[in-house]
């Protein structure tokens, strides 16, 4: 049987107190850095918006970025949307026919594609490719002093680098989403016909009855917001890169993770308000 000395009590209490204070400090630091991050991205967005509002836009660079960030993402967006539409139809069509709801399959597939899957999946796929590319490019420019060089030439990095990327994604992401919507519905239509013998006409008739122009516009509105988020998060992560090549790698990974999480959260918030949840 061990015997405790009288001094052990206060020591344990002091250790517990230190641990509690340390834990609280840790939480405080996390909360602080979270708001610092949100503040930083918002400030960057504000500066970019002001630059666009003043029409201080580099048009040729914006067109170039439309090609690099948008057009070059087309194949990957088409492939992911096609197979997502196909698998969604595969899972729903056979079941729907069994329960006598075959005539609704076109509506279900189109409804889901146009309102949710199309905009969100396109944004996630583009975020994986483009957000990482933006963060890596701007991060490399930071560590090789190219951002400071821009500033030393009297050029604002936001106007020079962020605005063309943001504008190009605001334009190209909705366009990619239209392609994703169309190819996703077409893939679903093909699988519904091949697996559940739902005719192409029945599928399209159901789709036309279920989705309206308003649904398409709301889906594209989401895409514009996602485009802004991808550009801002990628740019912010890139411009705040510290610590050489390792820092660039860290920024790139963080950019993709943060961007995808933000897309999912914002998608829920926008769906809630756009589609009558509020």
């Amino acid at each position: 049987m061990s015997v405790r000395s009288e001094s052990e009590g206060p020591n344990i209490e002091a250790a517990v107190e230190r641990a509690s204070v340390g834990a609280l400090e840790g939480v405080g630091r996390k909360v602080n850095s979270f708001f610092e991050y949100i503040g930083g991205v918002t400030a960057l967005g504000g500066e970019a918006a002001l630059t666009i509002f003043r029409l201080r836009i580099r048009f040729s660079e914006t067109v170039n970025q439309c090609f690099l960030l948008g057009y070059q993402s087309l194949i990957i967006v088409l492939l992911t949307s096609l197979f997502t539409g196909m698998v969604f139809s595969l899972e729903s069509a056979v079941q729907a026919v069994q329960y006598g709801f075959g005539s609704f399959v076109g509506g279900i597939v189109s409804y889901t594609n146009v309102r949710e899957l199309g905009p969100m999946l396109t944004a996630v796929v583009v975020a994986g490719r483009v957000c990482a590319a933006i963060a890596a490019e701007l991060g490399s420019m930071v560590v090789t002093e190219q951002i400071e060089a821009l500033q030393s030439l009297g050029l604002a990095p936001v106007r020079f680098l962020v605005v063309p990327r943001m504008l190009s994604l605001m334009i190209m992401l909705p366009l990619l989403t239209v392609f994703a919507d169309v190819i996703g519905v077409m893939g679903g239509q093909w699988i519904a016909h091949a697996q559940a013998h739902i005719s192409y006409d029945d599928f399209m008739s159901s789709a036309r009855q279920t989705i309206g122009f308003e649904d398409v516009v709301k889906g594209l509105f989401k895409s514009v917001i996602f485009g802004i988020i991808i550009a801002l998060v990628g740019s912010y992560q890139g411009l705040t890169t510290r610590g050489g090549a390792a820092g660039v790698g860290k920024s790139t990974t963080s950019a993709v993770v943060i961007c995808i999480i933000m897309i999912f959260i914002l998608n829920f918030i926008m769906s809630y308000f756009l589609y009558g949840g509020g």
Partner: peptide, 28 residues
């Protein structure tokens, strides 16, 4: 920005923009 247009800065590793030609870098 206005002040910097009258100051030249030659960086340690040149910091040329690697997506542009030398001519475009200097024309910028």
């Amino acid at each position: 920005i206005e002040m910097r247009t009258k100051i030249g800065f030659a960086f340690q590793f040149a910091a040329l923009f690697d997506s542009m030609t030398v001519g475009d870098n200097i024309s910028l």
